[in-house]
């Protein structure tokens, strides 16, 4: 009970910190503009949204792994880097909380923040429902997958944020790491790999990618393996964050 209360207190502080800086609002605006633009404009040129003849949010979800590549590291970069730079890390870690509670609290706060940004795209759902009769189950499943994927990116950003005092460095490294997670399942890369590697190897690489696992969610297939993939990526990354934070205090 105590642990939950501590996590909640830390998460609440962190979430307030987001909204007390302009970064949160800038982030949300950019995210919504990108979503709107890619869903309607880019989507329509590719003949997907309006010309599709059937109402769905496919084009909205297709682009998300790519927006997140830039936006999620920007949300996660300050989590630990800023604490170390300002010196509040010493304060936080000498309070009666375990480092796990601190890591979980901070992660949850930024994940909730990303969830809020995602929820603000609800006008898109209303629009497709107005234009046609989409399968709202598929859309809901897509949203769930999208939030899980954002969580995985975010956990990777936690690692890089714990590695450095400089937010920019954290941003760049986590962008690169997330790019690997993304490209491993990107079809041009897969095609290139299959031209010389064994299918088993190609599958192994592709199964490490967020794209591969997100695809099922987009189709409306809720597979436990995909959920487990994202959750284990999150747990593994947070564990690595704990190891790195401990390393600084040797």
């Amino acid at each position: 009970m105590n642990a939950l209360a501590n996590i909640k207190t830390i998460a609440k502080r962190e979430l307030n910190a987001y909204f007390s800086s302009p970064l949160a609002y800038v982030f949300i605006v950019i995210f919504l503009l990108l979503c709107g633009f890619f869903t309607f404009m880019v989507g329509s040129r590719m003949g997907a949204f309006f010309a599709h003849g059937q109402a769905s949010l496919d084009t909205f979800f297709i682009w998300q792994p790519w927006f997140y590549l830039f936006l999620v590291p920007a949300v996660g970069m300050r989590l630990w880097a800023e604490e170390r730079r300002v010196g509040t890390l010493e304060l936080l870690l000498t309070m009666p909380v375990t480092s796990w509670q601190a890591i979980a609290g901070k992660f949850i706060a930024s994940w909730v923040f990303l969830g809020l940004a995602l929820l603000l795209t609800f006008p898109l759902v209303i629009t497709v429902n107005y234009l046609g009769s989409p399968d709202n189950g598929v859309i809901l499943c897509g949203y769930a997958g999208s939030w899980l994927m954002a969580g995985a990116y975010l956990a990777v950003s936690c690692i890089t944020s714990a590695m450095t005092r400089a937010q920019v460095v954290s941003f760049i490294i986590s962008l690169v790491l997330c790019l690997f997670l993304l490209l491993a399942g990107f079809s041009p890369v897969i095609n290139f790999l299959s031209s010389w590697a064994s299918p088993g190897f190609v599958n192994a690489v592709a199964s490490c990618s967020v794209i591969t696992h997100f695809l099922n969610f987009q189709k409306g297939i809720l597979d436990a393996r995909d959920v487990i993939f994202f959750l284990s990526l999150i747990v593994f990354s947070l564990f690595t964050t704990a190891v790195i934070l401990r390393g600084h205090r040797k």
Binding site: R13, A17, V86, T88, L91
Partner: peptide
């Protein structure tokens, strides 16, 4: 150096 959360 008395650190404190600057965003609060």
């Amino acid at each position: 150096n008395a650190p404190a959360y600057t965003d609060m």
